[in-house]
Computed example of a mutant assay.
Amino acid sequence: MGKAARKKGPKNNEARRQKVRDVFVGQPFEGLAAEPELIAMREFVPSATAALSIADSPDRTVTLATVLPMAAAAFVRSDGERFLGLQVQTRSSDISRDLGRALQWVLDAEPGAVLSVPDTTTPAHAGDKRLQDLLVADAVLEPTLHTDFSWWLPEDTDPQGEVALSLERANSAIMPTDRVGPAAYWVEAGDKSHVRWVRPEPENALLQALARLSAAGEIGLGEDSRYAGSFRAHGLLVPVWDVDSEAHAREWIEPTQQLGERLDKALASLDETPLDATERRARDGLVGRQLTLR
């Protein structure tokens, strides 16, 4: 029995090492200044693109995109422009590693090449590069929002066949969306409109600051708005406000900026003044208002 156990030992050790490497990463974009925008583009922005800053190849350009044709992980357009997709169907325990593998693939791919799904099956190893290893860490992401997915194709291209069908289906599913601030997005969802804001702060600090604003009656975005709750996405908290569906998206830019200033002051005050009883009750109420994004 001892001999058999010794023979199985190395395999068991390797299995344990592999299990440790493949542990779930709850905050996959941590350490990147673009973390909130990456989360927004992955989770709820329908059609947007942004230029990536590649750390070792500043002269090489890759366009980050919300959704690519057929929900591909990456592809090189016929004109040579390279795209990396965020909203894909499959994922491993570490989204940043999946995206890192796809980014390395697209940097070396030829025009017309498509990576249909990210590499989520190759065992993790020490040589894997995550987004944090490939991108400029302090680079700010500046998304460009689009009203359709025509950017999938080079200019003056007439889509045909499956590409045309995929383009039509994707366009029909877009909900009107506008960026009203850094990582803050207005969206018209049927007969309702919302502002969703991915915040970079740790959840506990953010909830305390929001509670302070709530207790002071300053948590809203102004008239015809209501704080609806929040949801978690990739390790960060995303507060949501219901807003007047008759108002244009641009009407929420200034209120969002003003709320951000109030929130910054509330966050700064936490170091000197703990929550009082009223603010603690407000925090408990906010904790109970967790939303599910649909």
Rank of each mutant, 00 (worst) to 15 (best):
N171M: 09
I253H: 04
L263P: 00
D59K: 14
S47Y: 02
K265V: 12
Q257L: 07
E14Y: 06
A170I: 11
E223D: 09
E43F: 00
V180M: 03
P176Q: 14
G220M: 06
L291V: 12
L115S: 01
F75W: 15
P154W: 08
P10T: 10
L135W: 01
R280D: 07
K11L: 10
A249I: 10
R262L: 13
T90K: 11
E218L: 14
D264W: 04
P154S: 11
W197Q: 08
D284S: 14
P182E: 14
L153Y: 12
H125C: 12
S269R: 10
V106Y: 03
P200R: 13
A216F: 06
T61G: 03
V117A: 08
A33Y: 05
S193T: 15
L259G: 02
Q257Y: 09
L267F: 02
A124N: 07
Q27V: 05
P255M: 03
R82C: 00
P202M: 04
H194I: 15
R250Y: 06
P10M: 13
D156I: 09
E110D: 14
R42T: 09
D148R: 10
N13A: 14
P255D: 01
H248R: 12
D128H: 06
P69G: 11
L165Y: 04
R91M: 07
P274R: 15
L221E: 01
I174S: 02
V114Q: 07
I174G: 01
K3P: 00
A173K: 15
D156Y: 04
S92G: 15
E14I: 09
W152M: 09
H146P: 05
Q258A: 08
Q132K: 05
L259V: 02
E203K: 00
P28M: 06
S93L: 08
A73T: 10
R179T: 03
H194D: 02
D133L: 06
K8E: 06
L153P: 05
L167M: 13
H194Q: 11
N13P: 00
L145T: 14
W151F: 15
E272H: 10
D98V: 14
P143N: 04
A233C: 13
L236T: 06
T292G: 07
K3A: 11
R77A: 15
R281H: 07
S245F: 08
G9N: 13
I95P: 03
G288Q: 07
P200G: 11
P274H: 13
P202K: 11
D242Q: 13
K7V: 13
A282D: 00
D224Y: 06
E30K: 13
N13C: 03
W186S: 10
A73W: 12
A211M: 10
L286E: 01
R280T: 15
A15R: 15
E43A: 04
D133H: 15
R82H: 02
